[in-house]
């Protein structure tokens, strides 16, 4: 049974379709980082990416009345960013190899887009998990994984005992594991039924 859907967002989308600008501002805050991150996949320069993300939001706000279902809106933003980024790239580097990298010939665009969304969401979730750590753990995690520092170096930077750094790093990882563990997934229903049936079969023999 589904529980804890991306629930706030559904509600947000509904309000935006009705013209609620506060809701629009919240949507902007919650999606801009993901869209920038996604757009950077196609374009080299941040100002370019910032432009197309702004355009995508504006386009959404102006056509909000035509929006119908809820998940539609997030896809709309991502697709707009994708299309504009590729357009711009075409203009920048006509018939360049890069395009082939973005759109492998055998793959339909829909499949590619779906796979890309998974990457965006996974990195977004992971960043969120790290952000939910208390500050001191977060700092250690970032130094260890972003800056590739050893516990000894981190200890020097933060003026801590290396053992403390090691144990706090472990604790940080454990907290992230726990965060991931508690994150619920809605599995498609019939699949769950199959699994239950299989488990039941084995348990009863």
């Amino acid at each position: 049974m589904p529980i804890n859907q991306p629930y706030e967002e559904k509600e947000l989308f509904r309000l935006i379709a009705a013209g609620d600008e506060q809701a629009f501002a919240r949507l902007h805050t919650s999606y801009k980082d993901r869209l920038l991150y996604y757009g950077k996949r196609f374009l080299a320069e941040w100002p370019e990416v910032e432009d197309i993300v702004s355009e995508a939001f504006l386009k959404l706000w102006l056509s909000r009345a035509d929006m119908q279902s809820d998940s539609h809106l997030a896809n709309f933003l991502y697709r707009t960013v994708r299309h504009r980024a590729i357009d711009r790239q075409r203009a920048l580097e006509r018939r360049d190899q890069l395009l082939e990298d973005i759109k492998p010939a055998k793959e339909t665009e829909g499949n590619q887009f779906e796979a890309e969304m998974v990457r965006v969401e996974m990195v977004h979730l992971l960043a969120h998990a790290v952000d939910s750590l208390p500050d001191k753990y977060k700092r250690i995690f970032e130094l260890a994984y972003h800056a590739d520092r050893s516990p000894g170096e981190i200890a020097r930077i933060l003026q801590l005992n290396p053992d403390t750094v090691r144990s706090q790093k472990r604790r940080a990882i454990e907290m992230i594991r726990q965060w991931v563990k508690e994150k619920r997934v809605v599995l498609p229903l019939f699949l769950c039924c199959c699994i239950l049936a299989i488990c039941h079969f084995f348990c009863s023999h």
């Binding site: 998974v118 969401e121 996974m122 992971l126 998990a129 563990k181 994150k183 997934v185 809605v186 599995l187």
Partner: peptide
């Protein structure tokens, strides 16, 4: 959901 499964 798929992203969560990957993290798991």
């Amino acid at each position: 959901d798929i992203a969560t499964l990957l993290l798991k």
